[in-house]
Structure formats: structure tokens, C-alpha cells
């Protein structure tokens, strides 16, 4: 079964599975940033390019949710073309042979944008069929829903567990490379407990399973409602969905501080820090993460100091 790799919570794995292909969440590692990034390049996007370009016989669904990832998809597509000895002069990056699909997730929320997300999922379906998948029938849809492939879940971002004696914190940010999940452990080692997890692939981007018969009747309608209508993210305009998700949960869970993180050159998440910190009105810390394989000593010290100030 062909593997289809993806990274974004806006790519419904259930839709890939319904086409008879295997959805695989890319486990992005700092080791994949390789020899480093060019000036201005997001290390996460670079790691995605490097990891994906090693997987020759797979498909990739990346999203145009940020400029860096959109261009990473183009880069990757060109890499594959070059490897196949194609003449770039005559080619578009996303020609029919490309194993890379760029899903255009609209930034705006209005109804035409919603229709567009739905149309993009249909276009993804056609790509999957062209690449060897099958057009899903009712039983494919039912089966893929039953197999629980609705969620994007990044296992390495699971907190150790909520301890009642610890200071309840929220962690908020975009994607997180495997090694950088160490920040959860550092928080926990220093008397904190991640009681609200706003990293990509965690609570913030989880969707609630819908009704199977509804899915069979209108799969794209249900996926649009589950993903497009409900996931707040830094790239959405307006970005009010993020605060709508964060602020009530902060109150419900008696959160006492928020740790934000953003990769170097990630404008979208970096800019969120100030706005969200204003919205939650709690002590906040912004961590800048690079492409290193360990959290830097400076980052660890900053977490320790922050925890100390909260205890």
C-alpha cells in the first residue's frame, strides 16, 4: 500500500485512507535539518524537505498554510523531478508526475473560502486516484472512519501527565520536531505540569469524530466542518479562532502561565506570542527554537527561570 506523508492538521488522514492509501504523519526530526538552513529558512520546513526527499516511492501532501511550507513543497517537487532526470525547463513543479500535492487551505473563514477547502479536498482525492488510490465507495468511507484515522496526533508531544502539585501551564505553538518535545520534560522537571497543550497535533488541532452515515452521505461536507470550521491556527485570518480556543480553557484549567514557542524565522507563530499573551493576561514566555538536536542551554535556563517565577 502506498504511503502518503503529511504534516498539517488540515490534511484529513481519513480521506487518504478512504482512497486505499496509507496516511503517515511525518515524524519530523531535528536530525533532518541536516547541514543547516539557508538564511531566513524555517528549520522545520527544511527538515520536512530533507526527510521527504529521502522517501522515493511515497506521496506527500503539504499545505500552503504558510509561505515557508508552500515553498518547501515546490522545492521538494523540483528535487524529485531532478532525480528523475526531468528537464526543469519544460516542467511546472506540480505537474501530473509530481509525487507532491500542495493543498491550498484558505486563510480566511468565509463561506466561499469554506467551499474552496472542500474543493481542495476533492482535488486531493483526484490526485490520490491518479497516483494509484481508488475512488472511495460507502464501505471505504465507513471503514476509514472506523479505523480512527480522523486525528492528527503527534505522539512525542504528549505531556508526561498532569500532577496536582505542579504549576499548571499551557504550551502553545506550531509544529514541534521530535527532539524539541524535550521542552515538556524540562517544564515537568521544574515543577510545572502541561495542563493545556496547544502544540500542533495536540488538543488544539484534534477533531471530534462525526457520524459515519453523515460521512458516507457527504464526506467532503463533514471533513470541511470538522477541520476547516474548527481548527484555529496562526495562519488564519482573522486569527480569532486561536484565542477562542485558548482563553476559555485557560480559565477552566486554572492555568498560571503560558509557554509559547516558535521556530526561527517562523513569522506566523512568533507574531502570535504578543497577541495571545495579551489575550490570556498571564505570565508568558516565548522560546525560539532552531534546528539543533537538543534544546539549547539558554532555552532550558529560560524555562527554569520562568518556572521559578511562577512557583
Amino acid at each position: 500500500m502506498k504511503h502518503v506523508y503529511y504534516t498539517s492538521p488540515f490534511v484529513p488522514p481519513v480521506w487518504i485512507a478512504a482512497h486505499g492509501l496509507k496516511p503517515c504523519l511525518m515524524n519530523v526530526s531535528a536530525r533532518d535539518t541536516g547541514t543547516g538552513t539557508s538564511p531566513g529558512e524555517c528549520p522545520y520546513a527544511r527538515a520536512v524537505i530533507n526527510q521527504a526527499s529521502r522517501r522515493d516511492d511515497s506521496l506527500f501532501v503539504l499545505t500552503a498554510t504558510c509561505d515557508q511550507m508552500r515553498r518547501a513543497a515546490e522545492w521538494l517537487s523540483l528535487e524529485f523531478e531532478q532525480r528523475r532526470g526531468k528537464d526543469e525547463k519544460a516542467k511546472d513543479p506540480y505537474d501530473l508526475d509530481s509525487p507532491v500535492f500542495l493543498l491550498n487551505v484558505p486563510a480566511t473563514w468565509h463561506s466561499a473560502a469554506r467551499d474552496r477547502y472542500r474543493a481542495e479536498l476533492a482535488r486531493l482525492g483526484r490526485f490520490l486516484v491518479r497516483k494509484g488510490g481508488r475512488s472511495p465507495d460507502a464501505s471505504d468511507l465507513r471503514e476509514s472512519l472506523r479505523s480512527g484515522r480522523l486525528q492528527l496526533h503527534v505522539p512525542h508531544t504528549d505531556p508526561v501527565g498532569v500532577r496536582t502539585t505542579a504549576v499548571p501551564l499551557a504550551v502553545v505553538g506550531g509544529p514541534l520536531m521530535e527532539e524539541h518535545a524535550e521542552l515538556y520534560r524540562v517544564i515537568e522537571r521544574n515543577g510545572g505540569s502541561v495542563a493545556l497543550n496547544g502544540s500542533e497535533g495536540c488538543e488544539r488541532s484534534q477533531v471530534t469524530p462525526g457520524d459515519a452515515s453523515e460521512f458516507v452521505r457527504d464526506p467532503l461536507g463533514m471533513l470541511t466542518a470538522l477541520y476547516f470550521d474548527s481548527i484555529g491556527d496562526a495562519f488564519r485570518r482573522p486569527d480569532s479562532g486561536l484565542a477562542r480556543w485558548l482563553v476559555p480553557r485557560i480559565e477552566q484549567r486554572s492555568i498560571r502561565g503560558v509557554v509559547f514557542y516558535a521556530y526561527t524565522w517562523c513569522d506566523l507563530w512568533r507574531a502570535q506570542y504578543v497577541s495571545l499573551a495579551e489575550a490570556v493576561k498571564l505570565p508568558s514566555l516565548l522560546l525560539e527554537l532552531g534546528g539543533e538536536e537538543r534544546l539549547s542551554a539558554g532555552t532550558i535556563t529560560r524555562i527554569q527561570a520562568f518556572m521559578e517565577s511562577l512557583r
Partner: peptide, 20 residues
């Protein structure tokens, strides 16, 4: 007015800050 979608992240983020 601000166009978003296939734009740079810089502008999208800065304009959002402006709205806030």
C-alpha cells in the same frame, strides 16, 4: 484591506498584529 493566502508570512503576521 489585506490580501492573504499566497502571500508572505511577514505581511500576514504584521497585518494581523495591526488588527489586534
Amino acid at each position: 484591506t489585506c490580501s492573504v493566502g499566497a502571500t508572505c508570512d511577514d505581511f500576514s503576521a504584521i497585518a494581523q498584529r495591526l488588527e489586534h
